[in-house]
Amino acid sequence: MRANIFRHEFKMHLRSVITWSVAVAALIFVYVSLFSSFAEQAELLNEMMANFPKELLTAFGLTGVDLSTVLGYYGFVFLFVQVCLAIQAANYGFSLVSVEEREWTADFLLAKPVRRTQILTSKLLAALCGLIITNAVVWISSFGFINLFKGDRTYQTKPLLLLLLSLVVFQLFFLGVGLVISLLVRRIRSVTPYSMALGFGMYVLSVFGDLLGESVLEKITPFKHFNPHYIIQHEAYDWPLVLVSVAVILVSLVGSYVLYVRRDIPAIA
């Protein structure tokens, strides 16, 4: 780890971190502020939802969810938060190394007296730092807005804490997988399609898993590993699936180091 690279990288991320944090906080605000009106009409709503096609409910993660409870409703909001954080983390993962090669600045950095492992560690920590800031904003705005808008309803703190604690692992999954994929391909021209594909792809995969009852698909997507409704209902993680996430993170990080250290830095032909 080199402090100067870390500082430089962190500055490069800062604007994006702020944008994502504000966006996610706004998302939580808008949804949670609607909670009281949802809750008042709870019976009507639950009745209405019972008439919706099952597939539609599954697509929005609403099967067997009671939107009239604070956590039932928040679990539904949390899914959107997860999608946002997934795309953000994937974004940082895909661009971490590839941005230097796309903008041809890699020659500058790698001709300096540093090891590639130091470069990668500094970059990873800077990106992680950015993710943790967004993560903290999710914590603050979740607790803040829930307490602001819950009215006279109560909720249990433990499942909420479990949900929020899971975010770090969730983010690391997309950071790590994005990074390792970026090192497996020769060149990434634009990061956004990749991070959208990974973020949404994993989400869609978990929806399909639900629809088709296909249990193999569940095994690979962190949207399943950290399914908010499972965590709220059981007040616990689905540990075997959580371990799959952790394993994927470890493999992708180790793989990234191996690939980056051996990588031929492309030059303009």
């Binding site: 490069m12 903008e103 041809w104 600045t105 020659d107 500058f108 001709a111 030059a267 303009i268």
Partner: peptide, 11 residues
């Protein structure tokens, strides 16, 4: 070592 690449690109 000092290095001046043929194509210069910086941040």
């Amino acid at each position: 070592i000092g290095y001046l690449p043929s194509d210069v690109f910086y941040y």
